[in-house]
Write a protein that binds this DNA or RNA. Sequence first.
DNA 1: ATAAAATTAAACCACTCGGTCTAATTAAGG
DNA 2: CCTTAATTAGACCGAGTGGTTTAATTTTAT
Lengths: 193, 193
Amino acid sequence: MGYKYNKEDILNVGYDVFRRNGYHNVGINQILKESGIPKGSFYNFFESKEDFAQQVIEQYGENNRCWMKDYFEECTLSALECLKSFYALMINLNEKDDYSGGCLVNNMSVEVGRQNDVIASEANQHFIGWLNVLASVVSKGQENNEITSEFSALEIAEYLHAGFYGVLSRTKVTRNRVYMDTWFEMTFKLIGA
Amino acid sequence: MGYKYNKEDILNVGYDVFRRNGYHNVGINQILKESGIPKGSFYNFFESKEDFAQQVIEQYGENNRCWMKDYFEECTLSALECLKSFYALMINLNEKDDYSGGCLVNNMSVEVGRQNDVIASEANQHFIGWLNVLASVVSKGQENNEITSEFSALEIAEYLHAGFYGVLSRTKVTRNRVYMDTWFEMTFKLIGA
DNA sequence: ATAAAATTAAACCACTCGGTCTAATTAAGG
DNA sequence: CCTTAATTAGACCGAGTGGTTTAATTTTAT
């Protein structure tokens, strides 16, 4: 079929560009320039900008879910320590962008989640996938008596997830990790058994 | 000076439009149409779209800070109960938009906080103002022994604030209050003394 | 009343946007 | 090798962007 350009490569460029610059602030031409493909080829792969963005989220969301799953499966620490090391890693990963890049799916949700049902539901679907991965680890931590059982595993997963997103919003404008570290310390102290 | 149009009214229209639709998704023409003023008049008041957005944030940020301050000053409950009633009210206010409108300053931060230093610092400044109001109430709650003293009042204020923002992100795509209520319950249980 | 300053009004500008179209090129099948 | 289908290529399109300009109107000061 295709012979020169690779859909996945274009999606990866889209991921980078959208995550750093948002959706409406980015034109198709910017994607074309950064991925080095002409417009005709782009519209051969994707129906529209919206369709493209949806597929970007889809690919990233699924890749990230698998990555998380593997991370926790390979982690040899206790469930709670796995979660802590995961979030510590997440915080470190944000250093590259001066803590202002954030998460693509969160950024997209906030920017267009209200007007664009297609992107909103795509985003929500992937959130749910991630939350289930987190919840399974939380659940183990509850069995270990490391994590409070006052709330369900999924509720605690949502709590971790939404809390971290709130922090990402804050660091978008503070542009340093100070509050990320405080959030980390507070959250894991509070959800302890 | 001015005789027909009122700067504050245009800013209020800007607040509504930007909050619901974001920054880059909104053109000056939309602001003009909804506020019923011609372009010439707009550029008589504001230097540019960016300048306009900055002033929108400025006005809303300051109004909101005063509103919060008054709310807590007039609240006759205990400090913790004041905080709870405040967030309960915040959650209810979001019902109007099917829980997908969010906070203007948060939305702006996430959308343009990374690229636009002017808007980022304006947003951050108002966050800090709000956080100080919250922190003063938290502080009273700590004196009452209603709220944990394991962390500083400002840290807890940030925790509440960022947590609520994370929840706003989530409801942008879930579009219902379920998780807002869970967050409320969890947070206030966790920060209790 | 009149001159000067401020404001209102909208036509207009260059530019960019997402998307289409047609032609050339390449790949695959018989 | 030749036909057919898919892909590549980018010029092109109408609509909309933020912003400027110029003229008319209204306010203020004299």
